[in-house]
Amino acid sequence: MKKVIGIMCAVLLLAVGLTGCGQSDAQKLYVYNWGTYIDNTVLADFEKENNCKVVYENYASNEEMYYKLKSGNANYDVVFPSDYMIEKMIKENMLLPLDKQNIPNLKNIDPKLLNIPFDPGNQYSVPYFWGTLGILYNTEKVTETVDSWSILWNEAYAKKILMYDSQRDSIGIALALLGYSINSTNTDELNKAYELLVQQKPLVLAYVNDQVIDMMIGNEADLAVVYSGDAVYCMSENDKLAYAVPKEGSNQWFDNVAIPFTSKNKELAEKFIDFMCRDDISLKNTMEVGYTSANQNALKEASKEPAYDNIAYNPTDDILARCTAYQDIGQFIASYADIWTKVKAAQ
């Protein structure tokens, strides 16, 4: 009998869950963003200004977002893909072209972030946050100058090194150290990168994702590969930490706002993108998240804060000159995945 009641409860819960999304008169905007990538109060502001309801959901990787859209069971109006993913989605007709007239605040965006090869002329996307990939290190433990990826292969730091558990970033680092392009599709170059990563494995404490933030703040490791925005946060929490972008070059990444083909309310979605480009909103977001704002006025304002006055938040032109964006490498991504599997399975 207990079992029957249990099952009935489960069915009832499910039914409530399914019918819970009842209709209301206000327009709805479905926003799909990275986790902790917005100041949540701006959503309420947008709702009030436009008399609508924002349904906000999170994802953890570009791929997760891509496959959810691809499966056709999504109804998102706004997404935040990165550079190479935008290129891929444009190729596959998954993004709607933007009507720039509806986005006057585009003028606030730093011109050097516009018209990048992954989306020429910004027909489909508007920059939101951007940054670099670099090394976050503990200045108490690492006294030498950190200016090369090779320090991640230095045996003096055995089991004190954290790598990012991401095929593009980790293989990209090995490629950069070897002097190759981080977008390489040359099998020989990739094999050399593979050997280098296997060689490094005994020195690596762990291949991590977001845990890297807590671990570096807690002094669990001496060196870690991080995105600049995470470095900003870590350094504000632990003043022994410093950030460097190696001389061999690195990745400059862009997370842009775009409207996917699943959108049923393009007008409201464009209003939202314009809203996100507004100076006050951009500033709120960057102050909350710690990632570098694509809005030049917000960036200037934020850089006045001590925690934001560094090369992680505001990289010099010199650093940016040696950084490249990821490109969509198409089917070749399978080789990257294969190599990354082999590295992680190596004993």
Binding site: S61, E63, D165, Q167, V204, L205, I333, D338, T341
Partner: peptide, 18 residues
């Protein structure tokens, strides 16, 4: 620490990353 790849990780990686 992602250093012991098991079959579950392989499946996850193939579906979500690759």
């Amino acid at each position: 620490g992602g250093q012991n790849m098991l079959i579950g990780n392989l499946i996850e990686q193939q579906l979500m990353q690759a």
